[in-house]
Nucleic acid binder design. Structure first.
Length: 464
RNA sequence: GGCCCCAUCGUCUAAUGGUUAGGACGGCUUUCUUUCAAGAAGCAAAUAGGAGUUCAAUUCUCCUUGGGGCUGCCA
């Protein structure tokens, strides 16, 4: 049987980092096994779902390069299917209407908690089938459709999680859980089962936070007369306080990372967070090759920005000038005229794309406080005097001879001065306006002779 | 409270019934350097606790502890 998996984000926010990892593992599993990877938008919560978020999610998935197969399925368009399934269960007496009020349910729960019993609703008045007007799209106040379960059953729902092994739950502890607000308003657990079943999903690979939904879903599959898929529950991505990474931690939307990170780096990082590949840096193709679902880790992993930064820097270093400029434009929307010769100087040291601003002296004149020109082991005037000498040397120097030659000439001059810092420091500042930068001579060769001299002259106050 | 999941350096993790418990990020040191965010070399850093099985346990079992998730007429 062909493997079919899906990822099912709900458009109540941007694509979350955790969903992205889950999508990635689904994708890897499908690609590895010649299966299909589907995308379903769970937009049944009409109040919180927006088209904007849906677009954002699709965009994020595309950005990461997690291409899906077939059409996007929207849960909101599957109402009829849900309704049919609901009606089937009512007909067969496997579901019933409950009209306990919220207050009653709450009181029941409180009582149970006080008695240290599992919180659940055991319904005493089960209204069967057609009490509810089947044609109405209106919801009758307080009426809820629940799955009819034997509350005296000793049965346990057991399933083999591909990642975690056998997990079991007592049916009794579930209570008569709800499956729909009305015939036209199926609840999550029910909609998921009907959709996964119709989509012929063979493996449900999702976050650990869904483990406790699984027995309910298995029971729904049974009631519907369908065979449940295989389940695999991924570990959660944790914030540094080891709680589930959530909105309150900030920086949890994939799109937040676009301005600083290469999509390849994000994918690499997320992939390696809960799975051990043979090396730290590897392509998606290599990941597909090595991936085995059962080898995904069980314990949650803390999202470590430092490691992401490092991975990102590794990818940036490998970028050609062409690709670097393209990536920069994609990430930040900027279109600076960065010379190809300048790119290696930047990529060598860049961790985050937006930090490219720190290297702006490579394509535009720097602004700085002239006091910075003073070498720490000397005084301001001497620093300028030496810089004036350096200006002459550069002016006399033929750039065609190469940067090594220039370095030699300046080193010789340094020897005479007796302090290399006194020679190189003011030059660095004149060219970059910064106290740290790549080798000033490398920079001079990017700027070319004319611009180099111009900046030195500016530093010396010869031009304003 | 109830149910469920998890447990090796700060973080991500490797390993095997017998190893000096390995690697990566980060940190620190040294080196290179005018400086540094780069490079090179190196150092520190972990099997939560207690029983049991065994010649031998970090590894297998149980308990405890700790952390997390779920506990909606949200998804």
């Amino acid at each position: 049987m062909k493997i079919r998996v899906r990822t099912a984000p709900s458009p109540t926010g941007h694509l979350h980092i955790g969903n992205a990892q889950s999508a990635l593992y689904n994708w890897l599993f499908a690609r590895k096994n010649g299966g299909e990877f589907h995308l379903r938008i769970e937009d049944t919560d009409k109040v919180r779902s927006t088209k904007e978020y849906e677009r954002s999610i699709l965009y994020a998935l595309e950005w990461l390069g997690l291409n899906w197969d077939g059409e996007v399925v929207r849960q909101s368009q599957r109402g009829i299917k849900h309704r049919k399934a609901l009606e089937q269960l009512i007909m067969e007496g496997k579901a019933f209407w409950c009209n306990h009020t919220k207050e009653e349910l709450e009181a029941e729960r409180k009582k149970q908690e006080a008695k240290k019993e599992p919180p659940r609703h055991i319904c005493s008045h089960r209204h069967n089938t057609m009490h509810y007007p089947a044609s109405s799209t209106q919801r009758i106040k307080d009426w809820t459709l629940r799955l009819a379960l034997d509350q005296n059953s000793e049965r346990k729902i057991v399933f083999d999680d591909i990642i975690r092994g056998q997990i079991e739950f007592s049916v009794r502890l579930l209570g008569d859980f709800s499956i729909a607000r009305s015939l036209d308003n199926a609840l999550y657990n029910f909609a998921v089962v009907v959709d996964d079943s119709d989509m012929e999903i063979t493996h449900v690979i999702r976050g650990e936070d869904h483990i406790s939904n699984t027995p309910k879903q298995i029971l729904i599959y049974e009631a519907l007369g369908k065979t449940p898929p295989q389940f695999a529950h991924l570990p959660l991505i944790l914030a540094s306080d080891r709680s589930k990474l959530s909105k309150r931690h900030g920086g949890t939307a994939v799109v937040d990372y676009k301005k600083d990170y290469l999509p390849e780096a994000i994918v690499n990082f997320l992939g390696g967070l809960s799975y051990t590949f043979s090396k730290d840096i590897l392509t998606k193709e290599e990941m597909i090759d090595e991936f085995e679902l059962s080898k995904v880790h069980k314990s949650g992993a803390v999202f470590d920005l430092k490691k992401l930064n490092w991975i990102n820097s590794q990818y940036i270093k490998k970028l050609s000038p062409e690709k670097f400029k393209k990536a920069l434009q994609q990430a930040t929307g900027r279109l600076d005229d960065i010379l190809d010769a300048a790119v290696p100087l930047i990529t060598e040291r860049l961790e985050k794309l937006s930090d490219v601003e720190n290297f702006s002296y490579l394509w535009k004149e720097p602004k700085y406080n002239e006091k910075l020109l003073k070498w720490k082991k000397s005084n301001f005037n001497t620093s300028l005097d030496i810089l004036a000498e350096v200006e002459k040397i550069i002016d006399d120097f033929d750039f065609e001879k190469g940067k090594d030659e220039l370095r030699k000439v300046l080193d010789e001059f340094s020897g005479k001065v007796g302090d290399r810092g006194l020679v190189y420091w003011p030059l660095r500042v004149a060219l970059t306006g910064k106290d740290k930068s790549p080798d000033p001579i490398d920079i001079a060769y990017v700027l070319k002779k004319e611009e180099t001299l111009k900046r030195v002259k500016f530093a010396l106050g010869k031009i304003w």
